[in-house]
């Protein structure tokens, strides 16, 4: 049974009896969803819009969510991927009013839809990781630092950073659906 319990406390029960409470979901996943959106679109206001859209779509689709088929987090991030991909494509293709001759390059010009979507998928995966795993992957794989440099910066022993890299990438594979969750 689905119902609005209160204007300020939006929650519902899915068919398996699992509750979808917007405020609880936001508290648990809002920061990571915003991080995903912000890093994908690089615009705070637009990232806010995307996260709001994710929760509105989730609320509308709450009766189709099945807790026994996947976590709420995975479900919300799947919605977020679609919202952000739609937004990035729309932005890339959106004509500049009054400046037809300066029409911005679309996603197929140079970047390619595959490249843009791959970026967004990777950002989603990073956002789903623990802070520690994401930090070492970002520092080493994205920023190109050595483990020693990260140790100097953070104080975390290089040996620990190496194991975090291993488990972080393992977790990323799971987040991206490339490996079944144990």
């Amino acid at each position: 049974m689905l119902e609005m319990t209160d204007v300020r406390s939006v929650s519902a029960m899915d068919s398996t009896g699992s509750a979808f409470d917007v405020r609880e979901a936001f508290a648990a996943h809002g920061r990571d969803l915003f991080g995903f959106a912000f890093n994908s679109v690089r615009d705070t206001a637009l990232a806010e819009d995307c996260v709001q859209e994710v929760f509105v779509r989730a609320w509308r689709a709450r009766d189709r969510y099945r807790a026994d088929r996947g976590s709420e987090r995975t479900w919300l991030f799947a919605i977020a991927r679609n919202v952000i991909i739609d937004e990035v494509r729309a932005r890339a293709r959106r004509p500049v009013p009054g400046l037809d001759q300066h029409l911005e390059g679309g996603v197929d010009r140079g970047g390619g839809t595959g490249a843009i979507e791959d970026r967004i998928v990777l950002y989603a995966g990073l956002a789903m990781l623990s802070t520690e795993h994401r930090a070492v992957i970002v520092a080493v794989q994205l920023e190109g630092l050595t483990y020693q440099q990260v140790q100097d910066r953070t104080g975390v022993p290089a040996a620990t950073l190496r194991t975090r890299m291993y488990y972080g990438l393992k977790a990323l594979r799971i987040a991206l659906g490339e490996e079944a969750r144990p």
Partner: peptide, 16 residues
């Protein structure tokens, strides 16, 4: 993470 993507900036991550 390091594969060049033409016409797209390098991946970077911030924690806003």
């Amino acid at each position: 993470f390091s594969t060049p993507r033409p016409a797209t900036p390098a991946l970077q991550w911030d924690d806003p």
